[in-house]
Computed example of a mutant assay.
Amino acid sequence: MDSLIATFLSLLLSETGDRTQLLAAALALRFSNNRAVIAGFGLASLANCLLSAFAGSFVDEWISQDPVRLFNGLAYFLAGIAMLAWRRNLDLLTRWKTGPFLTAFLGLFILQFGDKGQFIIGANAAMAGHWIFPAIGGWLGTIAAVLPAIILKDKLAKLLPLKRIRIGAGLLFCAFGLLQALRAWHFI
């Protein structure tokens, strides 16, 4: 159950102000169909969370606890670096001729695939031993971060200091990742 809460909070922070949130808001603006965008996003996010947690559960079976802890630390550290780094422009999928559900599903699935959130979910699943809890936590955290963007659209940026949240969370993730790495190497 700890992995559910940890993954929920991690994904909530890592997706706030991130490209997934921005694309979901842009698609909601473009299509004016929140239900279809929410359904497409929710299904895409669920598939990515299940996939990454299931894959992470195999890591736990193959290697001992210290390398798993190091993998966890690296996932968080690199997620923190990604949150602090410059981001390239986001493709708003305006050339896609599909409807709101399919555009949201495919666009957000592709965008989230291989993203920092997947590595965090996989690393937490490797540490937890039960892959379903990090999968659920990751999915709920992603939903909690992105759903307000779909509903509020461009107003979210006026309500929350997204840049400060990203910088603070990025620094926190870097510190936690380093701490996990130091534990894996038995420095602390």
Rank of each mutant, 00 (worst) to 15 (best):
residue 2 D to G: 12
residue 2 D to P: 12
residue 5 I to M: 12
residue 5 I to T: 12
residue 7 T to W: 03
residue 11 L to E: 02
residue 12 L to P: 02
residue 13 L to P: 00
residue 13 L to V: 03
residue 18 D to V: 09
residue 19 R to L: 15
residue 23 L to A: 03
residue 27 L to F: 02
residue 30 R to M: 07
residue 31 F to P: 02
residue 32 S to L: 11
residue 33 N to F: 06
residue 34 N to G: 14
residue 34 N to T: 10
residue 40 G to D: 01
residue 40 G to N: 00
residue 41 F to W: 05
residue 46 L to F: 10
residue 51 L to I: 11
residue 51 L to N: 05
residue 52 S to Q: 11
residue 57 S to Y: 07
residue 61 E to Y: 13
residue 61 E to R: 14
residue 61 E to S: 12
residue 62 W to Q: 15
residue 63 I to G: 07
residue 69 R to W: 06
residue 72 N to D: 14
residue 74 L to Y: 04
residue 76 Y to M: 12
residue 77 F to I: 12
residue 78 L to Q: 06
residue 84 L to T: 08
residue 84 L to P: 01
residue 85 A to E: 09
residue 86 W to V: 13
residue 86 W to R: 14
residue 87 R to V: 05
residue 88 R to A: 13
residue 89 N to Y: 15
residue 90 L to I: 11
residue 91 D to P: 06
residue 93 L to W: 01
residue 95 R to M: 14
residue 98 T to S: 11
residue 100 P to R: 01
residue 100 P to K: 02
residue 100 P to H: 08
residue 102 L to F: 10
residue 103 T to Y: 03
residue 104 A to Y: 01
residue 105 F to T: 00
residue 110 I to R: 06
residue 110 I to P: 10
residue 112 Q to M: 10
residue 113 F to L: 10
residue 116 K to Y: 08
residue 127 M to P: 00
residue 127 M to F: 07
residue 129 G to A: 06
residue 130 H to Q: 15
residue 141 G to D: 02
residue 144 A to T: 09
residue 147 L to P: 00
residue 150 I to D: 06
residue 152 L to K: 08
residue 153 K to A: 11
residue 155 K to N: 14
residue 160 L to H: 08
residue 169 A to K: 02
residue 177 G to H: 01
residue 180 Q to P: 07
residue 185 W to R: 09
residue 186 H to R: 12
residue 187 F to Q: 14
